[in-house]
Design a protein around this nucleic acid. Sequence first.
DNA 1: GTCTATAAGTTGATAGAC
DNA 2: GTCTATCAACTTATAGAC
Lengths: 204, 204
Amino acid sequence: MTGGGRGRGRPDTGVREAILAATEAILAEAGVARLSTREIARRAAVAESSIFYHFTDRLGLLQAVVRLHLPRYHEVAAEVGRSAGGGSLRDNLVRLLDALDAYYRRITPILAAVQADGDLRARFAERGADGAVGPQRALLPVVDYLAEERRLGRVRADLDLEPAALVIVATAYQRAVFHHLGAPGGPADTGRVVDTLLPALATP
Amino acid sequence: MTGGGRGRGRPDTGVREAILAATEAILAEAGVARLSTREIARRAAVAESSIFYHFTDRLGLLQAVVRLHLPRYHEVAAEVGRSAGGGSLRDNLVRLLDALDAYYRRITPILAAVQADGDLRARFAERGADGAVGPQRALLPVVDYLAEERRLGRVRADLDLEPAALVIVATAYQRAVFHHLGAPGGPADTGRVVDTLLPALATP
DNA sequence: GTCTATAAGTTGATAGAC
DNA sequence: GTCTATCAACTTATAGAC
């Protein structure tokens, strides 16, 4: 694998990237159930065997897709976390929820694949155990953000951070799932959700 | 299909039920990707062709599994809804969240399959359109429950019901997903979640 | 209604030329 | 690194006996 040595040595012909892109596209349209190496190769306009050269096997490819996207979650959440003191608490929460929602909409097909493929789920659980990506780890950036707002006195002093973060992340994810399932419009806009949640979070 | 005429005419040999049970088991363990008629037949100790006799094709079988479980959601939520006036608001919310959580844990593999299989997702979206099961419809029983508590004056008069229901359903679903992905213990117990949410819901 | 037998097509994966 | 060619195993689905 050239993976990681971008811009060094012989330039990638783009086959690896084309394979990853085609995989994501199929995942989004048809789902894991119909993700075949044959179809990936056809879409990427690439030889089927190139998939095995770059990713060893089908599961390796799926893992690569997961590892390519899940870590970006921390970027998304951290960016909002940095602006903790900035605007109003309400505005920050709206931006946090919108950022989470946008992120989850992008990766919902991948998350669905992890949930629906036993092997992939198993490997994902392993990684979670050693602390790398694990499921509840998704809460940490939001917990950090709330802790900062609490330090600034804008969030209730007695707020239980983990449940609060769970509720926020859960709401964003749920909306993304609804969207993925074809819900028209999506239930309630972000402003209404934040206004509803605010009495539980803000300092009275 | 004898389906529906339980206890009338010749008794079912149980093949249909065995197929459904085996399908659910495989869905829970291995996921849609590995759900083959061959494996279903093996587990159910049944001829592969019986699957096609009862369910026409693979997708028909998947639809049958979905239709068998999703409607139970309304039973679950409605049962809690009936006890609206009963105990304290907090106790009712704990019971509602626990009921939703238990339900979602059972059907998470099926929901994952719907999300991860394009064909199944498409048919599910169709049904949603004609108002039968649709995604956001999941919110209605919770909206009804909150409306009743609001009528009784225990929930804020100005509570925006849809977002509130969304947050509750989302939290239960998120916890079920964490559990399915192998999260140890699950993040925060129901009591803490409800206590965190309560200031947003209860009459001040 | 349930079975056995079978068909045609697709699957993930490998070998070897360039 | 990427390709073409090839494989055995498995896939969904059908036909027809009981």
